[in-house]
Design a protein around this nucleic acid. Structure first.
Length: 317
DNA sequence: CGCATTTGACCCGCGC
DNA sequence: GCGCGGGTCAAATGCG
């Protein structure tokens, strides 16, 4: 079927400003609007009058490149936040994160290189596949034929919670849902998102042994914004990188120039925030002081609320 | 023909 | 315990 499978709803683009601002607008955006974190008395971190250094922003391809190292990411964020708006919070394990956000004076960003993964992943990496093995087992187990009704049944050990890989989410302003990041992805699912007209798509890296997944969702508040959440770490190099950046992929090294020229890169990275998300509790690193531009005020944040605590979004009166 | 996408069904965790 | 929502599977289908 060639019907446009992606409910793009161009008509709902909030006309004025689709593609209205770019990378370079971010700093001013922050400086202007992010002074008062919701729920917080006031912020202090965001002064960077002219200090926006694009190079301090890592691209998502950066993050995904090769053995993605979340500690590196956290460092990168450390960089960013020291100069502006993104703050990595030491995880502290689950619920502590929220608390620490509220209570702890920010600005001190504990460089906790391990924190992003420490809390949850002992075996998570590379083994998302609690589900995979289940399939094997199921395949063998269901040979008696009694399983017809249950296609998916997961012999997961009791008491063993599904392990979540560290997640890393980005907001990009893009016309296309599926951002070209140099890796090959296979779509394995799509779900309607509650309170949103836009579906969420689920992708998995097609490379063997690589269990990285990503979710792509369009903000219904601002349809021009795509929220991409990566989960897991690539165990390989980006195919596009290996091919010498063929295919129009944006290599990390190209980012800075991309910021200036945005060549064929039709999405603009607006925001990124790493997170480890362990089933039900966001933790570790949050975007802080994220007082979005009007455009980002999302009553229902979809994926965002998954990775960013609600208190980080402005409440609408 | 092989690979990617679509889509309905199913499982799981969580809140009530 | 039940219902809901999120996440995943896999058969069917489409496409190059």
């Amino acid at each position: 079927m060639s019907e446009n499978r992606e409910p793009r709803h161009h008509d709902t683009y909030n006309g004025g400003s689709s593609m209205g601002f770019s990378f370079m607008d971010l700093p001013s955006l922050y400086n202007n609007n992010m002074a008062t974190p919701p729920g917080g008395s006031e912020s202090q971190t965001m002064r960077d009058p002219n200090g926006f250094d694009p190079l301090q922003y890592i691209s998502f391809t950066d993050c995904l490149q090769s053995p993605m190292d979340y500690s590196a990411i956290s460092k990168a964020f450390d960089l960013s936040c020291s100069s502006s708006e993104v703050i990595g919070l030491g995880d502290g394990g689950g619920g502590a994160a929220n608390e620490s956000m509220e209570s702890r004076g920010r600005g001190t960003v504990p460089a906790t290189p391990n924190s992003s993964v420490s809390s949850s992943s002992t075996e998570a990496v590379g083994e998302d596949d609690v589900g995979r093995c289940k399939k094997d087992q199921q395949g063998k187990g269901s040979e008696d034929g009694t399983e017809t009704a249950k296609k998916v049944n997961k012999p997961r050990k009791k008491g063993e919670k599904r392990q979540r890989e560290p997640r890393f989410a980005f907001m990009t302003k893009s016309e296309v849902d599926h951002l070209e990041d140099g890796y090959r992805w296979r779509k394995y699912g799509q779900k309607a998102v509650k309170n949103s007209p836009y579906p969420r798509s689920y992708y998995r890296c097609t490379t063997q042994k690589c269990s990285v997944k990503k979710r792509v969702e369009r903000s219904f508040q601002d349809p021009s914004i795509v929220i991409t959440t990566y989960e897991g770490q690539h165990t390989h190099q980006s195919p596009a990188t290996l091919r010498g950046n063929a295919g129009g992929m944006l290599a990390p090294s190209m980012l800075s120039s991309a910021q200036q020229a945005a060549p064929s890169f039709h999405h603009e990275l607006l925001m990124q925030y790493p997170t480890t998300h362990t089933q039900g509790e966001s933790s570790s690193m949050y975007l802080q002081n994220f007082t979005p531009h009007q455009q980002f005020q999302l009553p229902d944040y979809g994926l965002l609320q998954d990775v960013v605590p609600p208190s980080y979004f402005p409440r609408q009166p």
